[in-house]
């Protein structure tokens, strides 16, 4: 091949580079868009829309079942129902450290966590241990049938008593 024959070929390549550049940009752009779409799709898919978990509202039965001065733990729903001098209140039994189920120790009069040794009073106040927060109080109320209901979905900011 002579030099003359090579030149137009080179010129053609020069023109092709910019077109190639455009296609590369287009290709990389589409791959990025596809990845972003796949990430969103994946997140939506992995986050369940319907949960077959127990209802956060639990029926604790008639308030008469909780005599004055008693601390009752419901293992199944992980709540305490305490009947103090000011009335009945409900507390989460889930430790604020790492989510273990705490237990009421009647002989010591405290609530203790078996996992890492956090201790709380019957009002949920932290005595010691790695737990960063007190046990959260839960909203409790009496429904029209006279049953005590407890909402576990979110902690109450303040104290709340049910008077019977």
């Amino acid at each position: 091949m002579s030099d003359d024959a090579k030149k137009p070929e080179g010129a053609e390549n020069d023109a092709a580079v910019s077109r190639r550049q455009a296609f590369v940009t287009l290709g990389v752009g589409s791959i990025c868009a596809a990845c972003a779409g796949a990430a969103m799709f994946g997140y939506e898919f992995l986050a369940p829309n319907v949960l077959y978990e127990p209802s956060p509202v639990v029926n604790a039965g008639k308030p008469d079942g909780y005599p004055a001065g008693s601390v009752t733990q419901d293992q199944q729903s992980a709540v305490y129902i305490v009947h103090g001098p000011e009335g009945i209140y409900a507390m989460s039994a889930v430790c604020t450290h790492l989510g273990c189920l705490t237990a009421w120790k009647p002989e010591l009069g405290i609530i203790a966590c078996p996992c890492h040794g956090s201790k709380f009073t019957r009002a949920g106040v932290k005595i010691e241990g790695p737990a960063p927060h007190p046990l959260p109080w839960l909203r409790a109320w009496i429904n029209e049938d006279g049953d005590l209901l407890i909402d576990r979905s979110e902690p109450l900011g303040q104290k709340q008593f049910v008077r019977t």
Binding site: Y43, L46, A47, P48, L51, Y52, E53
Partner: peptide
């Protein structure tokens, strides 16, 4: 945590 467990508690998911 929600994505890993597929829920709010350690359950069937």
């Amino acid at each position: 945590r929600f994505l890993v467990l597929g829920g709010h508690t350690v359950n069937a998911n």
